[in-house]
Design a binder for these strands. Sequence first.
RNA 1: CGGGGCGUGGCGCAGCCUGGCAGCGCGCCUGUUUUGGGUACAGGAGGUCGUGGGUUCGAAUCCCGCCGCCCCGACCA
Length: 474
Amino acid sequence: MPASNFLSPARLRSPPRRSALGSAANLDPTPEHPALRLSRAFLPTLKETPAEAQIVSHRLMLRAGLIRQTAAGIYAWLPAGQRVLQKVAQIVREEQDRAGAQEILMPTIQPAELWQRSGRYDDYGKEMLRIRDRHDREMLYGPTNEEMITDIFGAYAKSYRDLPRNLYHIQWKFRDEVRPRFGVMRGREFLMKDAYSFDLTKEGAIHSYRQMFVAYLRTFARMGLKAIPMQADTGPIGGNLSHEFIILAETGESQVFLHRALLDYDALREAPDYDSDLSHITEFWTRHYAATDEKHDEAAWNAIPEADRVSARGIEVGHIFYFGTKYSAAMGLTVAGPDGAPVHPEMGSYGIGVSRLVGALIEANHDANGIIWPDPVAPWAAAVINLKPGDAATDALAGQVYAALAPDALLDDRDARAGEKFADADLMGHPWQVIVGPRGAAAGRVELKRRRGGERAEVSPEDAIARIRESRSA
RNA sequence: CGGGGCGUGGCGCAGCCUGGCAGCGCGCCUGUUUUGGGUACAGGAGGUCGUGGGUUCGAAUCCCGCCGCCCCGACCA
């Protein structure tokens, strides 16, 4: 494979700094990122909605060219979708790291033997995709990784001094759902962040749980989502302490009930010290009533003043569990305690549905014209729309604005009608549109449109660039 | 897994009941036109009608099997 600019991570992560309009040498609009010109990009949009899509996020993901279905509940991610998926994953990663978790990467394929040891191989049922390799060994495509992480961690952890630890990975999982639906919101193959904590004591495990609890609040808030922790069933993972993180969206899959106070708190207001006692934060979020319809308690609900009751639709985007020694005992994981006697570490696991979040973000951020990406997860900060390709002044100005923003912007240099370009930009949901037409170009002005809200202003190119950069770094 | 529905060009659909040259809109290509919210006109390309079998002079259409996809329910990050 030939070397390419696109293979250089350094270039992707830190675009070269230039003056606002770039240098004269950058009059060529795409010196480094030719695939970000729409005339060359693979960003297929659809005018009509494919019949299979039911909910709004699925429809928009297909129409905006984010995904393509390959089989029921299995999707290919196209360039725009892949960029969003990576943005979401990166925010998750940063907040996990900040909370003290360490990233690893476990395989998608697991030997059945691991699951036979925990007893879950027979319990898991047909949701587990079971396969055989050429030697007829029983394997499976992992639906989760408690067994594997316990095996891996246990191979090295010998002493209580090796605790606590929290390991996570972001990996594709497979659950052979009977009925996949809602696009990536409930696919069979899905990208998930799952973290696993190991502690010497239950108190330690609860601290680890709180770290993840707080990290989750921050993670979702950074994406512009209001995620509410709600008491949850522990389900097949087992254990006795668990919260679901539910984001509120009109088109959410389940009904939720909560106290209004939970909507008023900004999870990013303070930067937590993860080594300190975090109980004041978790207590704030758990002292108010919040439940999904399955766990709804009419008596508790009625005890809330009418004005403080919020009934809404929600989507589960995260789920955290403390489950004690369930797996460490089953898998035979012990470390030497302070007194030399073997101890089963106390464990928890913490999931975030990364691919599902892309759908959930759209459910929470769209209008009749398409997606409205929050700045932190938008595939590109802006689309620079050249209204008259071929006009020298327009080409030059659009190219300069684009060059100053690349690779965090697209350049719509297609020979197409203005309406088509506007419609595509709205559909794809770029937070900003920089509209460059011949009249403005002659006057050295561009029109800056904010996708959310639709405000437009005629500004100088420098101002447009500055405002877009500012919203991006906020 | 129970119930229901649908597979016809890239997308959305009609045609099937009552068998007889495979159609429409959008998109795509060429030309002209238009030029700030999916413009108009003209020309054009593109389909083993999901698949296998059967009935028939003849099957997209009727019959049987299979596959795929979607919806409701149960289930679920």
